[in-house]
């Protein structure tokens, strides 16, 4: 039957346009779920959803951001079903975790740069894990995956201004948390 010819073309197009971003999808899923099996599952779900909705994707527009939007929505849907994570649409100035959040940059006489030099690779993920989802996702997208504000606004579905404020608060929190971890490792003395 001649109509069997088109799925192959569509599959190839999808692989060439969308599946090339699989690494980004996987890393983002890992940082959203903190669980390898769950991340793999989430990426599979997102890819299949993307494939089924591929006719809605406008060629020439940003496929990576489109895919991340689908991943994010699939993740949110799972959260609502499982509700195993605090879901903050905007955590505002709330403090979370054991470390209180101050504007680390204003702390005078604190050799913070030196402190952050001692951060171990796993620390960033450990610290990210304790950030509220709304802050974590903008940091993952902007700082770890290099998305623009405009793309992030599309993915997390909020105004660019909100992306900026979340980034600014999230980075301050993350910096503080990493400082705490470096101290924990004993690289920097508490009294410093």
């Amino acid at each position: 039957m001649p109509r069997w010819a088109w799925p192959g073309d569509r599959t190839r197009e999808f692989e060439e346009t969308a599946l090339v971003h699989l690494d980004t999808l996987y890393r983002s899923a890992l940082r959203l779920t903190h669980n390898r099996a769950e991340a793999e599952d989430l990426v599979q779900e997102a890819c299949l959803r993307a494939f089924r909705g591929f006719h809605r994707f406008n060629p020439g527009t940003n496929c990576r951001a489109w895919l991340l939007t689908i991943l994010k929505n699939a993740f949110l849907k799972r959260l609502k079903q499982g509700a195993h994570e605090l879901l903050d649409s905007d955590p505002g100035d709330q403090q979370r975790g054991a470390i209180s959040i101050t504007d680390a940059g204003r702390t005078r006489g604190h050799p913070e740069e030196e402190l952050l030099q001692t951060v171990l690779h796993g620390d960033v993920d450990r610290a990210l894990k304790t950030l509220p989802l709304a802050h974590r996702e903008v940091i993952v997208l902007a700082d770890l995956e290099g998305f623009s504000y405009k793309e992030i606004a599309q993915i997390v579905d909020c105004p660019i201004g909100t992306v900026m404020s979340r980034l600014s608060r999230g980075r301050a929190q993350l910096r503080q948390l990493l400082g705490g971890l470096a101290r924990e490792h004993g690289y920097v003395k508490e009294s410093e």
């Binding site: 599959t11 996987y26 890393r27 599979q44």
Partner: peptide
């Protein structure tokens, strides 16, 4: 701080996951 975050190892998707997704996409097609 941004550089510190960028220095994080960039993990790739496992090859098995890639293969599985490709197979499922083809099947779905």
């Amino acid at each position: 701080f941004r550089q510190l975050l960028r220095r994080q190892p960039r993990e790739s998707a496992p090859p098995e996951l890639r293969a599985m997704i490709r197979a499922r996409v083809r099947r779905s097609a």
